[in-house]
C-alpha cells in the first residue's frame, strides 16, 4: 500500500532539525575551511641546504598516472651528487592522487593545503622546481 504522507513528514522533520543546527556553508572567501593534515593540495618540494631535497630518482614521474611530472637529473660537478636540474609539474594534468608523495624515497615532494589554484594563463599552471621548493 502506498503511503504518501510518511516520507513527506520524514523529510520535513530533517529540514526542521537543520533549522536549529550550525550552518555547513562557508562564507568563502571571508570564511576559510579547516584543512585536514592529509589534504592533497598543491605540491611542494622540501629543501635541503641550497636546493630542493629531490635527488632526481625519477620514481614520481614513473608512478604518476597523469604523466605530469618532468624530472631531469644532473651531476654536481664538485660533490658528484645527483640532483634535479629540472622538476616541473603540469598542474592542469595532475589528478591530485598523491602517488608522487608516496613514491618519493627521500621525502622530497609533499602536498600542501593550498587548494586555491585558479590562474589566468596555462603557463601559470606549470609549476617549476623554483616555484615548488620551500622558500625558507
Amino acid at each position: 500500500m502506498l503511503n504518501v504522507a510518511s516520507p513527506l513528514i520524514n523529510g520535513l522533520k530533517i529540514t526542521l532539525q537543520h533549522l536549529f543546527k550550525k550552518p555547513v556553508t562557508l562564507q568563502y572567501p571571508t570564511e576559510r575551511p579547516e584543512i585536514g593534515p592529509r589534504f592533497r593540495g598543491l605540491h611542494a618540494l622540501n629543501r635541503y641546504h641550497d636546493r630542493s631535497k629531490c635527488v632526481a630518482c625519477y620514481l614520481c614521474p614513473t608512478v604518476c598516472p597523469a604523466k605530469c611530472i618532468t624530472v631531469e637529473a644532473a651531476e654536481d660537478p664538485i660533490t658528484h651528487d645527483k640532483y634535479a636540474s629540472r622538476y616541473d609539474i603540469d598542474l592542469l594534468r595532475c589528478i591530485f592522487c598523491g602517488y608522487c608523495v608516496e613514491a618519493c624515497p627521500v621525502d622530497a615532494v609533499k602536498m600542501t593545503g593550498n587548494f586555491e589554484l585558479a590562474n589566468y594563463s596555462r603557463d601559470d599552471f606549470n609549476y617549476t622546481q623554483e616555484k615548488l621548493t620551500d622558500k625558507q
Binding site: V55, A56, C57, L59, D81, K82, P105, V106
Partner: peptide, 8 residues
C-alpha cells in the same frame, strides 16, 4: 642508495 644509482 638506489635512488641515485644508475643501476637501479
Amino acid at each position: 642508495d638506489c635512488p641515485v644509482c644508475d643501476a637501479a
